[in-house]
């Protein structure tokens, strides 16, 4: 993995995803000070700041459904989740099993891995009707 952590003085190239322009940003970090060059607008600076100090992603995956019409329940985090803990998140989600019925928006895990973020169901899945 490309390490997002920056040592005392470090350069990093980033592609801005704040808008479709896809500007290449040159970020230079010295101590707590981050300078960003190359963006066409102000949003690039904010993007680079976030990407370097605290990169986060909305996580989506599925977990095992029990007794439902479908075998898997799609889920997501309600807020962007720390990128460096993606792996922990995925491993944790393999342990989660949900019983039908479940409704789109139901909280599946509260405060996942202590990050203060919830995991919610993104689809409604009814109980499987026994075969006639």
């Amino acid at each position: 993995m490309k390490s997002p952590e920056i040592q005392s003085r470090e350069y990093r190239q980033l592609i801005c995803t704040a808008c479709p322009m896809g500007c290449t940003l040159e970020a230079e970090k010295e101590g707590d000070l981050i300078q960003v060059k190359g963006g066409r607008c102000q949003r690039g600076g904010k993007y680079a700041q976030d990407e370097i100090t605290n990169p986060r992603r909305v996580m989506t995956t599925t977990c095992v459904m029990e007794g439902g019409e479908l075998r898997r329940l799609p889920i997501r985090t309600t807020q962007p989740f720390p990128k460096n803990r993606m792996d922990d998140f995925m491993t944790f989600m393999t342990t989660v099993r949900v019983s039908a019925p479940v409704f789109c928006g139901d909280i599946i895990v509260s405060n996942v891995l202590g990050e203060g973020i919830d995991v919610i169901a993104t689809r409604t899945i009814r109980k499987k009707q026994p075969a006639p």
Partner: peptide, 8 residues
């Protein structure tokens, strides 16, 4: 939203 949420 995710795809299933949009559909929902």
């Amino acid at each position: 939203l995710t795809g299933p949420e949009y559909a929902s």
